[in-house]
Amino acid sequence: MDENEPIELPIDGILDLHLFQPKDLGGLIPDYIDACVEKEIFSLRIIHGKGKGVLRRTVHSILEKHPKVQSYRLANDSSSWGATLVDLEQC
């Protein structure tokens, strides 16, 4: 697969970041949030993996600044450090 080729994502409230480069997240996450709001999906799961926590901190930093994000937290299950749950404001 060509790295410049766009990746089509299902808009279902689950965003797995394993397919993306960290440099892409600044545009990807806000665009995905906006697409979910358009489809009236207000609960998201963003899968960032465990690792050293760099990707998780980047995701949380982006969520902190997005006006539609009501709250976010680490998932409280077996992948707790590997995913963040996001609640969006309902318009």
Rank of each mutant, 00 (worst) to 15 (best):
E40W: 00
V54T: 14
D34H: 13
E5Y: 12
T58F: 04
S78C: 00
Y72G: 07
R56E: 07
D31Q: 15
D24Y: 10
A35W: 04
E64V: 00
H60L: 09
R56N: 09
P6N: 09
G82D: 10
H60D: 08
D34Y: 07
E8L: 10
P67C: 08
I11W: 02
P6E: 11
R45T: 13
Q21M: 11
D87Q: 15
V86A: 06
L19Q: 14
I11R: 01
I7L: 15
L63I: 06
L55N: 00
A75M: 01
D12F: 04
T84H: 02
V54F: 08
Y32H: 05
C36K: 01
A35E: 09
L85V: 09
N4Y: 04
S80G: 15
V54G: 13
H18E: 10
L85E: 07
N4T: 07
Y72V: 04
I33G: 05
C91Q: 14
V54P: 00
L17E: 02
I7T: 14
N76V: 03
G82P: 03
I62V: 11
S43V: 04
D34E: 15
N76Q: 05
H18C: 07
N76Y: 03
D34I: 10
K65N: 13
Y72T: 04
P67I: 08
I29K: 11
L25D: 08
E5G: 00
E89H: 12
N4E: 14
L15K: 05
K50D: 03
L63E: 01
G82V: 07
A75K: 05
D24G: 07
E38W: 03
D24H: 13
K65P: 00
R73F: 10
W81K: 03
L44I: 00
I62E: 08
V69Y: 10
A35S: 12
C91Y: 11
D24A: 15
K65Y: 02
W81S: 05
H48R: 11
P30I: 04
L63T: 05
E89D: 08
N4P: 00
I62Q: 12
T58N: 09
V54K: 06
G82F: 05
Y72W: 15
K68M: 08
I47Q: 07
D34R: 13
I46F: 04
L44W: 01
G53V: 06
L28K: 13
K50E: 08
D34S: 13
V59K: 07
M1Q: 11
F42T: 04
I29D: 02
D87P: 00
I14D: 02
I29G: 01
P10H: 11
Q70M: 13
L74D: 10
P6A: 12
G49T: 02
V59L: 11
S80D: 04
L74K: 07
